[in-house]
Structures are given as structure tokens and as C-alpha cells.
Design a protein around this nucleic acid. Structure first.
Ligand SMILES: [Zn+2]
Ligand SMILES: [Zn+2]
Ligand SMILES: [Zn+2]
Ligand SMILES: [Zn+2]
Lengths: 139, 139
DNA sequence: TAAAAACTCTATAGTCGCTATAGAGTCAAG
DNA sequence: CTTGACTCTATAGCGACTATAGAGTTTTTA
């Protein structure tokens, strides 16, 4: 059962151009071609693209995904690297959450500086952006 | 008191190329030039760059910053737009935090599927990336 | 005073993960 | 047999920088 790129796009919820991009980047193997030079995908491609899209939905980079796919293609080894990659990724996610929460506190402390519609010159927010007293602000 | 681009970079904690980039993007006005065609910055530039870098540290985009600078340069109006811009930015930050926390839950549920060093074929993480049972996962 | 080091200049290309466009070819339905 | 939907390749753009090359300027050192 071979499908064309548009059907694969619908199944996987991504754009046609994205699929071609993954092929160019070496994440998806080159598919067979029809007489009219259309790409023809089989089950292997469908599953592999789902894997890629799942990883992307988890915010992995294409090079992380490349690594995982490479491991998957070498089933003889053990999976320590997989677990390690995921651990790093989880930690990075936690760090980004922390950074964003810090950011939000900073933004809220700035927001408090202006109550309503003053003149621009008197706006505490703009003043705070020039000269900030938020703890830990390096600006 | 006029300083050169390298000194301005040190003061503001950003790269020389970034300063030139801001000039090209119209965020920093074109400075005076020395006899040897070096950029010469004054207090106005220093303060404006600090403002920009502070906004960037708050994760504002350059076009948001352009808007704020435009408002700052028109001190006659009231500051309602400033407050509104900040409110939108705060809400976006909250949404990103929520999305990241969701992501982290997803990653942790995946991580649980593999305890130790199995063979690649038996790794629950790789299997979960192909065929996920995490609630709300569309992959 | 001359050579070396440090700085600056412009212009251009690369990063990431797509997205958008142009211009041509292929295929199925009416 | 024409219309429309689909596909092909190649190229450029997004945002906010970063990196590089090759030339010119200024400061430091010998
Ligand atoms: Zn205000
Ligand atoms: Zn601050
Ligand atoms: Zn495992
Ligand atoms: Zn999932």
C-alpha cells in the first residue's frame, strides 16, 4: 500500500513541504517514485514520520531526533543513550519553566508601576524599562 | 562624551554586531562618525540601548520594542498602549509556562516507561514515541 | 618610527524549523 | 479535452542574532 505525499501529510498532521524538508535533512529515507516522479510512501515511512512528529511535539530538535532514529536503526545496542537523552531534555524543560516564571515575576513587578492612563512621560512602566529596581535585574 | 562601539558593547553586555544590527533595524539611530569612519555614541544611545536590552531580557520581540520606543518618542499621548502591550506579553508568558508544564508531564510519563539498560528493541521510551498512550497526546 | 596588536568597517552567509512563492509537470473527473 | 487538484524542483523569507572574510584605523609596544 503506497500513498502520495498529500495523504501522508493529512495522516501525520504536517505540511507537505515539511515532509520534503525531513527528507532533505535525512530524517526520512527517500521514497519510491511513481512513473510521473511522485513520491510513494509505504508503512515504514508512515510510522517513521509519526515518530518524528511525536518527538517534535515534545520539542526535541531535529538533531536530537536524528540521534534517536539512529539508535532505533541499530537495535543491537542497549538503550542507555535514549534514557540519557530524555533526561537531558526533561531537565532543559524544567530550566525553561523556571526561567519563564522568573520572567513573569519581572514583568508583573513592572506592570504594577503603572495604574492607568497617564502621559507617556509619567508612565512607570517605561521608566522601569529604563531604570529597573526589580531584584536580580541586570538591566 | 562619545564612546566607540566596543565600549558600548561592554557597557550594555551585548555584542558589537548586535548593536550594528539594531541600527540596521532602525531601533538605534545612526550615530556620529569619527574621521576614520568609526561610530561614536553619546548618552542618548547608551540609554536607548539599555532600554532595548532590558526589553529583550523580558523576551519582547524587536517589533514590540519598536512600538515601545515609538511611544516613548511621542511623549504627548497617554500610556494606555504601553500597559496593554505589557498585559498581552504577560498573558503570552503564562501560556508558554502552561504549555511547557504540559510538555514536562508528557516527557515524564514517557521516561517512566524505561527503567534501565534494555536492548533498543525493548526500550519502552522508543516504543512510546511510536505509539503513545499519554492522555491528550495527539501523536 | 615602525611593526604588531587590537579595534572597526562593510558585506555576505549561516543558524533552526519550517513557510511561502514561482513556474512547470502529472493525473483524475466531467 | 479541459478543468482542477495534486505534485515536482528551486529559491527566498522568517527572527534575532552569529560567524566569516577582507580591508581599513587606531593604539601599544619594541
Ligand atoms: Zn503607563
Ligand atoms: Zn528589570
Ligand atoms: Zn530504554
Ligand atoms: Zn505522546
Amino acid at each position: 500500500m503506497e500513498i502520495r505525499i498529500g495523504d501522508l501529510a493529512k495522516r501525520s498532521g504536517c505540511e507537505v513541504v515539511t515532509i520534503r524538508y525531513y527528507e532533505k535533512e535525512g530524517l526520512l529515507p527517500k521514497p519510491a517514485r511513481s512513473g510521473g516522479n511522485f513520491r510513494l510512501y509505504s508503512d515504514v515511512h508512515i510510522e517513521r514520520l509519526q515518530f518524528i512528529r511525536h518527538c517534535r511535539s515534545l520539542d526535541m530538535t531535529l538533531s536530537e531526533i536524528r540521534i534517536l532514529l539512529g539508535l532505533r536503526d541499530n537495535p543491537a545496542q542497549d538503550c542507555g543513550d535514549v534514557n540519557a537523552l530524555l533526561d537531558v531534555h526533561i531537565r532543559q524543560t524544567e530550566e525553561r519553566v523556571e526561567a519563564l516564571l522568573q520572567l513573569k515575576r519581572h514583568l508583573l513587578s513592572l506592570r504594577e508601576k503603572c495604574s492607568g492612563a497617564r502621559r507617556i512621560e509619567a508612565c512607570g512602566i517605561l521608566q522601569g524599562l529604563s531604570d529597573c529596581d526589580h531584584p536580580g535585574c541586570n538591566a
